[in-house]
Amino acid sequence: MDATRWTGLSTAPHGAILSRIAEMIREVHLDARLRPEHPQAWMEMETRFSYLPVSCSGSMIDYQMAYGRCGGAVMIDISLILNHDRNPCGLWPLSLTLLENGDIRISSQGGCIAPPLFRAELAGKSVHDIVTRCLNFLKLLGNWTRHRELVLMEGFSGLHAIGHWHDQLMRLGAVVTLRHELFVDLSLSLAEIKSCMRKSFRSLITSGSKIWQIESITSANPEVWAEFKRLHFQVAGRSTRSDETWQIQYDTVVSQQGFLIGLRDAHQRLVGGGYFHVTRQEGCYAVAAYDRALFDKPLGHVVQFLAIQEMQRRGLRWYKIGRRHYPADTPSPTEKELSISCFKQGFATHILPSYEFSLTISPS
């Protein structure tokens, strides 16, 4: 099947598309299984990593796929469970998206193409060989879809060193751009974490904790979740995403892969809240909503601090707050992006590097 003759991914048989993907996997001698055909195997693999980023969790992949469909995009999950000597050794989030102009894009659920995640005990030579096959697979996929200008990334996943993915991309001629991510080291004591926070934030956390009644939702509670969803709608002034995405996030709370921190006023009205997606090792700031009439009072400060406490209670290692934008970044960030990332930095203990790669695939 020639991808260039698709009238749209929505009209192409998904089975035929996945069959062609499987052919390319075999062509580059990559031992792998497609997540859509083996969802349980992906879930089982999640428990075998010493550090599993939220972005590699099946629940986050499902959320991003559903979010991508909110704008009418057609997305197909082609994430791969990687094997070595016939045993599962890695996970690789991948997807195909059909854009409105008919172009097909390769990504990791709408974002830059992420590197495969490997188990810590896998030998370096084996990682190198599998990464080589993964990149050969991307070359085939890029030529098949005619998406030859790839954007890839490498972020923090428990290790600080540059890995085989980074090295081989540079050897292929990729151009790299430095990005920055904000993290909290949850192995520090709460007092140490608080000492790293912006001084003004510390006093706001103290005062806010006295103003608001705090609610931590860590298990099934549909009534409070519905309140949070309504608050988000009121603050945004419209529905920004589908009911499916909200349901996926609520399901993570039920399954202990997420939690909600809520703040109530003296009248028991929910005035603010933040939802956080987690694995066993990492937490991620996902979405928040606060009553705009109360922006002069400490809301987000309290939610962030309580979220850190909840992550520590669960034994997580790192909290990923989000990207730190700088004025000289390319493309230039908006004033809102700069303001939000400056606010987030007030809670961080670390600014860690991430890398964005541009790679051109030669036609074949």
Rank of each mutant, 00 (worst) to 15 (best):
R179V: 01
R179D: 09
L182K: 01
F183Y: 14
L186W: 01
S187P: 03
L188G: 07
S189F: 09
S189C: 04
S189P: 06
L190I: 10
E192F: 00
E192D: 13
I193G: 07
S195R: 11
S195A: 09
M197C: 15
M197T: 06
M197P: 02
S203E: 12
L204C: 03
T206F: 12
T206Y: 11
S207N: 06
G208L: 02
Q213R: 14
I214M: 13
I214E: 12
E215G: 04
S219V: 14
A220R: 15
A220F: 12
P222T: 11
P222H: 07
E223F: 10
W225M: 10
A226P: 12
A226E: 15
E227G: 02
E227D: 10
H232L: 04
F233Y: 13
V235K: 05
V235W: 01
V235R: 02
S239M: 06
T240C: 08
D243F: 09
T245K: 05
Q247Y: 10
Q247E: 14
Q247P: 05
Y250F: 15
V254K: 13
V254N: 08
S255L: 09
Q257M: 00
Q257P: 02
Q257S: 01
F259W: 00
R264S: 01
A266F: 07
A266I: 13
G273I: 05
G274Y: 00
V278R: 04
V278Y: 00
V278Q: 09
Y285L: 08
Y285N: 02
A288L: 09
A289N: 04
A289P: 15
A289V: 03
Y290F: 15
L294V: 07
D296M: 08
G300S: 04
G300A: 03
G300C: 01
V303F: 05
F305Y: 11
